[in-house]
Protein backbone atom coordinates (compact mmCIF):
# COMPACT_ATOMS: atom_id res chain seq x y z
CA UNK A 1 0.00 0.00 0.00
CA UNK A 2 2.79 2.44 0.89
CA UNK A 3 4.25 2.22 -2.60
CA UNK A 4 1.08 3.37 -4.30
CA UNK A 5 0.65 6.80 -5.72
CA UNK A 6 -2.64 8.46 -6.61
CA UNK A 7 -2.52 10.97 -9.42
CA UNK A 8 -5.54 13.20 -8.91
CA UNK A 9 -7.09 16.61 -9.37
CA UNK A 10 -9.84 15.78 -6.87
CA UNK A 11 -9.55 17.73 -3.59
CA UNK A 12 -11.66 15.13 -1.76
CA UNK A 13 -8.99 12.49 -2.45
CA UNK A 14 -6.36 14.74 -0.90
CA UNK A 15 -8.50 15.19 2.22
CA UNK A 16 -9.47 11.55 2.59
CA UNK A 17 -6.21 9.71 1.96
CA UNK A 18 -3.69 11.75 3.91
CA UNK A 19 -1.57 8.69 4.63
CA UNK A 20 -1.12 7.82 0.94
CA UNK A 21 1.21 9.40 -1.55
CA UNK A 22 -0.84 11.84 -3.57
CA UNK A 23 0.35 13.67 -6.62
CA UNK A 24 -2.09 16.55 -6.96
CA UNK A 25 -2.27 18.09 -10.43
CA UNK A 26 -4.20 21.03 -11.86
CA UNK A 27 -6.60 19.50 -14.30
CA UNK A 28 -8.06 16.41 -15.90
CA UNK A 29 -5.62 16.26 -18.83
CA UNK A 30 -2.69 16.46 -16.43
CA UNK A 31 -3.99 13.43 -14.51
CA UNK A 32 -3.82 11.37 -17.68
CA UNK A 33 -0.52 12.74 -19.02
CA UNK A 34 1.18 12.43 -15.63
CA UNK A 35 -0.03 8.84 -15.36
CA UNK A 36 1.21 8.06 -18.85
CA UNK A 37 4.60 9.55 -17.99
CA UNK A 38 4.81 7.36 -14.90
CA UNK A 39 3.95 4.26 -16.93
CA UNK A 40 6.96 5.08 -19.11
CA UNK A 41 9.03 5.24 -15.93
CA UNK A 42 8.09 1.67 -14.93
CA UNK A 43 4.93 2.29 -12.96
CA UNK A 44 1.85 0.24 -13.66
CA UNK A 45 -1.82 1.12 -13.49
CA UNK A 46 -3.65 -0.28 -10.49
CA UNK A 47 -7.03 1.33 -11.22
CA UNK A 48 -8.54 1.64 -14.66
CA UNK A 49 -8.18 5.18 -16.04
CA UNK A 50 -11.76 5.11 -17.38
CA UNK A 51 -13.32 3.78 -14.16
CA UNK A 52 -16.94 4.77 -13.69
CA UNK A 53 -19.45 5.54 -16.36
CA UNK A 54 -19.75 9.28 -16.15
CA UNK A 55 -18.22 10.13 -19.49
CA UNK A 56 -14.58 11.13 -19.75
CA UNK A 57 -14.42 14.94 -19.93
CA UNK A 58 -17.92 15.29 -18.42
CA UNK A 59 -16.61 14.58 -14.94
CA UNK A 60 -13.85 17.15 -14.44
CA UNK A 61 -12.28 15.07 -11.65
CA UNK A 62 -10.25 11.92 -12.06
CA UNK A 63 -7.93 9.88 -9.89
CA UNK A 64 -5.68 7.08 -11.07
CA UNK A 65 -3.74 4.71 -8.80
CA UNK A 66 -0.31 3.46 -9.87
CA UNK A 67 2.34 1.21 -8.33
CA UNK A 68 6.04 0.81 -9.12
CA UNK A 69 7.09 -2.18 -11.18
CA UNK A 70 10.38 -3.46 -12.55
CA UNK A 71 9.97 -2.87 -16.27
CA UNK A 72 7.65 -1.16 -18.71
CA UNK A 73 4.17 -2.64 -18.37
CA UNK A 74 2.78 -2.74 -21.90
CA UNK A 75 -0.76 -3.47 -20.78
CA UNK A 76 -0.75 -0.29 -18.71
CA UNK A 77 0.71 1.68 -21.58
CA UNK A 78 -1.89 0.41 -24.00
CA UNK A 79 -4.69 1.08 -21.51
CA UNK A 80 -3.62 4.64 -20.66
CA UNK A 81 -3.09 5.50 -24.34
CA UNK A 82 -6.54 4.16 -25.23
CA UNK A 83 -8.01 6.16 -22.33
CA UNK A 84 -6.30 9.36 -23.50
CA UNK A 85 -7.65 8.75 -26.99
CA UNK A 86 -11.19 8.37 -25.58
CA UNK A 87 -10.74 11.47 -23.41
CA UNK A 88 -9.74 13.53 -26.44
CA UNK A 89 -12.67 12.16 -28.44
CA UNK A 90 -15.14 13.15 -25.73
CA UNK A 91 -13.48 16.53 -25.15
CA UNK A 92 -14.10 17.44 -28.77
CA UNK A 93 -17.89 17.37 -28.31
CA UNK A 94 -17.96 18.49 -24.71
CA UNK A 95 -18.97 22.06 -24.06
CA UNK A 96 -16.69 23.52 -21.44
CA UNK A 97 -18.71 25.14 -18.71
CA UNK A 98 -18.33 26.30 -15.17
CA UNK A 99 -20.13 23.98 -12.76
CA UNK A 100 -21.71 25.14 -9.52
CA UNK A 101 -19.95 24.18 -6.29
CA UNK A 102 -22.60 21.56 -5.49
CA UNK A 103 -22.18 19.84 -8.84
CA UNK A 104 -18.40 19.96 -8.52
CA UNK A 105 -18.70 18.25 -5.16
CA UNK A 106 -21.02 15.57 -6.56
CA UNK A 107 -18.50 14.81 -9.28
CA UNK A 108 -15.74 14.65 -6.66
CA UNK A 109 -17.82 12.19 -4.63
CA UNK A 110 -18.32 9.95 -7.68
CA UNK A 111 -14.56 9.88 -8.30
CA UNK A 112 -13.93 9.29 -4.58
CA UNK A 113 -16.26 6.27 -4.44
CA UNK A 114 -14.46 4.70 -7.41
CA UNK A 115 -11.08 5.08 -5.69
CA UNK A 116 -12.55 3.93 -2.37
CA UNK A 117 -13.83 0.75 -3.97
CA UNK A 118 -10.45 0.21 -5.65
CA UNK A 119 -8.50 0.59 -2.41
CA UNK A 120 -10.93 -1.59 -0.47
CA UNK A 121 -10.38 -4.51 -2.83
Amino acid sequence: MKDLVIITNNPKIKEKFEELKIDFVDNLSDVYSKSRDLVHQDWKLMSHPLAGSVKPAQNPYRSIILAPTKKLDFYSLNTIENAIQKLNQFKKDHKKREYSQKIKEDYQVIDLTLINSALKN
Binding site: L45, Y75, S76, A118
Partner: peptide, 8 residues
Amino acid sequence: ENVTLADK
Protein backbone atom coordinates in the same frame (compact mmCIF):
# COMPACT_ATOMS: atom_id res chain seq x y z
CA GLU B 1 -16.69 -5.02 -13.57
CA ASN B 2 -14.54 -3.58 -10.82
CA VAL B 3 -12.24 -0.56 -10.74
CA THR B 4 -8.84 -2.19 -10.29
CA LEU B 5 -6.98 -4.08 -12.98
CA ALA B 6 -6.17 -6.81 -10.45
CA ASP B 7 -9.88 -7.37 -9.86
CA LYS B 8 -10.48 -7.44 -13.59
